[in-house]
Write a protein that binds this DNA or RNA. Structure first.
Length: 278
DNA sequence: TGCCAGGCTTCAC
DNA sequence: GTGAAGCATGGC
């Protein structure tokens, strides 16, 4: 019988995480089965009513996946921060209380969110997967063959034509330059982790194709800087239509990014669109 | 078929 | 410094 670790946790919803738009390689295989490729390995998961079953050894769970899913953080504290009078945020939290802010590798997040600009989530997933198939290392496993996220060096070796074959459009030259910057040592993503938030954002903004929004995504999802608050079209729409153009961040200082994620997921939900006629 | 998508860069002014 | 135009492509 293969190894398995069961997680029972109120604030853990695989379906919500999979469609949260923060990672693009956690995919649904069936109603309750999911496949995650991250950290150079793959993991099968089964959604449970109060958590998930991780199909791996206890050691792999402890060393790799518990940190990845940020399991030592108590998200109920963030959920409880929504004030009684903010009915919209309370509904957003209720809708997304199983979300986690994943601790992904900065390089993968950087590439994924350079790709993300002016694309919807299915299109991003498709481009990321095409890129992995094109130049990612095959993972040691049975059929079907799956591919790790490509290293900067492997991406830098691609021609512009090869990059464009992943439906990257005008983003291909951004990715090519980013891959060169990292593979040639002009940009040390690991070293950036030692910088404070302001210096980290400044460094990320030197990368072509990275503006304030993408930089905030990389900070939040790649460096676990929970104060990052990416403003995309969905968030701006919510702030404009629900908060009169000004969302109060001060009450959520230090975990603005978690609140942002609740807002983002609720804004894209059917509940929200039906309720607000959008 | 047309609008939109986890925006950024460039170029007038 | 600010605002508008242009950008490639696929989902819905």
């Amino acid at each position: 019988m293969s190894a398995m670790v069961e997680l029972h946790c109120k604030n853990f919803d695989l379906a919500a995480i999979a469609k949260s738009g923060q990672c693009f390689r956690l995919t649904s295989l069936s109603a309750a089965e999911y496949l995650l490729i991250a950290n150079g390995r793959q993991l099968c998961l089964t959604a449970l009513p109060d958590g998930a079953a991780f199909h791996c050894t206890q050691q792999e769970f402890d060393d790799c996946w518990a940190p990845y899913f940020d399991l030592t953080t108590d998200y109920s504290v963030f959920c409880a921060a929504a004030p009684q009078e903010d009915l919209f945020l309370r509904e957003a939290v209720r809708c997304g209380e199983g979300l986690r802010i994943l601790r992904q590798e900065p390089w993968e997040v950087l590439v994924s969110f350079i790709i993300s600009q002016r694309k919807n989530i299915p299109a991003i997933q498709k481009s990321v997967e095409a890129l992995c198939r094109l130049c990612g290392e095959p993972l040691p496993a049975e059929e079907p063959i799956r591919y790790a996220f490509p290293s900067p060096a492997r991406m830098a070796a691609l021609s512009m034509e090869e990059l464009c074959s992943c439906s990257l459009g005008y983003r291909a030259r951004y990715l090519h330059e980013a891959a060169l910057m990292v593979s040639e040592g002009r940009l040390d993503l690991a070293a950036l982790g030692a910088l404070d938030d302001a210096a980290l954002q400044e460094a990320l903004l030197t990368i072509p194709g990275v503006g304030v929004k993408v930089a905030n995504c990389v900070m939040l999802f790649g460096y676990h800087r929970l104060s990052g608050f990416p403003r995309d079209v969905w968030i701006n729409r919510v702030i404009d239509t629900v908060y009169g153009g000004d969302f109060p961040l001060e009450p959520y200082r230090g975990f603005e990014g978690v609140i942002q994620q609740y807002l983002f997921c609720y804004a894209r939900s059917r509940d929200y669109r039906e309720k607000y006629g959008i």
